[in-house]
Design a protein around this nucleic acid. Sequence first.
DNA 1: CTGTATCCTCATGGATACTG
DNA 2: CAGTATCCATGAGGATACAG
Lengths: 122, 122
Amino acid sequence: MPHTGEKVSDTMSMREEKPINRLQDTPFGYTLSIISGKWKMVILYWLVEAQPIRYNELQRLIGTISHKTLSVQLKELENDGLIIRREYPQIPPKVEYNLSEKGQSLYPLMESMCQWGEKYKT
Amino acid sequence: MPHTGEKVSDTMSMREEKPINRLQDTPFGYTLSIISGKWKMVILYWLVEAQPIRYNELQRLIGTISHKTLSVQLKELENDGLIIRREYPQIPPKVEYNLSEKGQSLYPLMESMCQWGEKYKT
DNA sequence: CTGTATCCTCATGGATACTG
DNA sequence: CAGTATCCATGAGGATACAG
């Protein structure tokens, strides 16, 4: 898998005793750490579909995510630079979420996942 | 996201009251259910790199996965049809794991993940 | 409306020992 | 060698209440 142009052992192997190459430090591992978890990709998916989207609408679309979980996940996605939170100083408050360019760039990945699922889903 | 050719609400939305379209029943959700989790993609990654591979070697390569966890994950991957377990009736036992065609077909996804990580990793 | 703050449950995964 | 069995720790995620 030519993910770096280097030998695999240079970028991902745990074989070296020191320094230990942690999975997270590899491109593959980094991506994994960003999009793994139960909800990350689902949230990103809906952002692709419906951005800009407000907090409540997002929760309604996902349907089964809890209040706190959505909140935490959104904050993590924001910290990872995948989404942009835009707050309107109103009463009542209004917040819109959009994908950043970095977030948008995951679109091909989601596409691949959809196509793969389409093909292999029982 | 044209993952089915149908309207999004027909395949993924939770908006309909009944029947509720569960995420798992969508192509996207199916893929998610298959590859999510902490180790699935890591194991598949190493299979791409080093198949056919034996149980012990696999654990050694991953480096930080526990005995039980690897065992459980391998069984799930086998049940999902992504890998093929081949047992040689020897003493001591020898077992080799290979990717099935279905498993191999995830290669583009892994490729995408590597490339994305390569580009956006800090 | 858009969140935080608590508290709690439970699945995931780890350590260790044992088996064919 | 390639697992299973058992027990345990951790943290992700959920329910509910409260706040700005």
